[in-house]
C-alpha cells in the first residue's frame, strides 16, 4: 500500500464527487469530461491495488486476508461499473450515481487502511 496514493485517491474522489454534485444541481447529464475524471480515478485505484497485491505477493500479509482481497476487488470494480451505469442515463441522475460512487470510495479506502494496519 502506498500512503500518498491513498490520500491522492481520496482527494481526487471527493473532488469528482463534488464536481458531479454541481452538475447534478445544474441539471446536466454525464458528459465526456466526467468520464475522463472517472478514468483518471480508476487508474489511480488500479495503481494502489497493484501496489497492494505486489506487497502481498512479497510476503507482507495482513491477518484478515480474504476480507482485504474482497475490498481490493470492490474498489477496482466500483469506478468503471458506476461510470458505465451513470453514463447510460442521459439525465442529471447520471452524475448523481458517480457522486455516490465517489463518496463511497474514500470510505472503502479507510476500511482497507484499517485492515492493512490495524490499530492494536
Amino acid at each position: 500500500m502506498v500512503d500518498w496514493l491513498t490520500m491522492t485517491i481520496q482527494m481526487v474522489s471527493l473532488g469528482v464527487a463534488v464536481w458531479c454534485l454541481v452538475s447534478f444541481f445544474q441539471d446536466r447529464p454525464m458528459l465526456v469530461p466526467h468520464l475522463i475524471g472517472m478514468g483518471v480515478l480508476w487508474l489511480l485505484v488500479l495503481g494502489q491495488v497493484g501496489a497492494a497485491v505486489a506487497t502481498m505477493v512479497g510476503g507482507d500479509r495482513p491477518d484478515e486476508l480474504p476480507m482485504l482481497i474482497s475490498y481490493l476487488a470492490t474498489i477496482a470494480l466500483l469506478p468503471p461499473a458506476c461510470a458505465v451505469w451513470g453514463f447510460m442515463e442521459r439525465s442529471k441522475w447520471g452524475p448523481a450515481v458517480i457522486a455516490f460512487a465517489c463518496f463511497v470510495l474514500p470510505v472503502l479506502l479507510v476500511r482497507i487502511e484499517q485492515l492493512w494496519s490495524p490499530v492494536v
Binding site: S70, W85, G86, E89, S91, W93
Partner: peptide, 25 residues
C-alpha cells in the same frame, strides 16, 4: 430504472455487496 431509479439501483447494488460480503465472512 431511469432518473432517480438509476441512483437507487447503484446504492442498492453497493449495499447488497457490503451486507452480503460482511455477513458471509
Amino acid at each position: 430504472r431511469s432518473g432517480p431509479g438509476r441512483l437507487l439501483v447503484a446504492v442498492y447494488a453497493v449495499f447488497a455487496l457490503a451486507a452480503t460480503a460482511r455477513g458471509t465472512y
